[in-house]
């Protein structure tokens, strides 16, 4: 029974803090006030301040986590609505994502190797550009640590979403297709959530990129890791 109330409290505070973070983002629109970033920081600070272990928070967090699976399934809906446009631009999306998967694994592995990190870290870091469940599976298969893989996935997701508007402006990637492919290939579902806020079409392309990327990275990672190490 006590767990029920802890869980309820954790969910209500998470939702409340998320709504607050959205308000802050409306008042001060900036990449650094991305709601997921602000909300995560506030919750971490609260947990540290009141000495609440992560496992206790997750009694409630797990409920929200449970909705992540059906939410990924739900991404088929915008895909279906935008299907005719996506069909016309299937080739540029496919090639962009394939090259992105190659770049993501190769640079991740090589940079970590050059910086002197061991195989456990390299294996956990290599699938960072794909959505959490896939990245965990890939890291596990290679001999990395799935919880560590999740952390790198989160850095790629939040970091990419925060930096995306500046990067697209700077690199002159202006059309919805380039932006959708870029953010979906680099920052998976968190990037897709950001793209969805820009437009449904950009979000749908990001969804396609994210799914394709998950498939390409699953196949390419074992090959490229053994090639580069």
């Amino acid at each position: 029974m006590i767990n029920f109330f802890i869980g309820l409290l954790a969910i209500l505070s998470t939702v409340g803090i998320y709504m607050l973070a959205k308000k802050i983002n409306e008042k001060v629109p900036s990449p650094f006030t991305l709601p997921i970033l602000i909300a995560t920081i506030i919750i971490i600070l609260l947990l540290l301040l009141f000495h609440i272990p992560y496992d206790t928070y997750m009694i409630g967090g797990e409920w929200l986590n449970q909705l992540l699976g059906p939410a990924v399934v739900a991404l088929a809906y915008p895909l279906y609505v935008q299907r005719n446009i996506i069909k016309q631009i299937a080739m540029p999306i496919f090639i962009g994502v394939l090259i992105g998967a190659f770049v993501g694994i190769s640079t991740g592995v090589l940079f970590a190797k050059w910086a002197g990190f061991g195989e456990l870290i390299i294996y956990s870091l290599s699938p960072k550009s794909v959505t959490t469940p896939v990245a965990m599976d890939i890291a596990d298969t290679l001999g990395g640590a799935p919880p560590l893989a999740v952390i790198f996935v989160m850095i790629a997701g939040i970091g990419g979403s925060v930096l995306s508007s500046v990067i697209f402006k700077w690199s002159r990637i202006t059309n919805y297709m380039g932006r959708g492919v870029g953010i979906g290939s680099a920052s998976h579902a968190i990037g897709t959530a950001k793209a969805m806020e820009n437009s449904q079409l950009e979000g749908s392309i990001s969804t396609v990129a994210m799914v394709l990327s998950a498939i390409f990275v699953s196949i390419l990672t074992p090959v490229l890791v053994s090639f580069w190490i």
């Binding site: 992105g100 993501g104 960072k128 970091g159 990419g160 697209f168 870029g182």
Partner: peptide, 22 residues
């Protein structure tokens, strides 16, 4: 490392698909 690699993926994949699309 993760951020740099992420930025490279974003720019290269985005630029490639935009270029082919155009």
């Amino acid at each position: 490392i993760v951020l740099l690699s992420t930025v490279l993926v974003m720019i290269i994949s985005g630029a490639v698909s935009q270029w082919i699309g155009n």
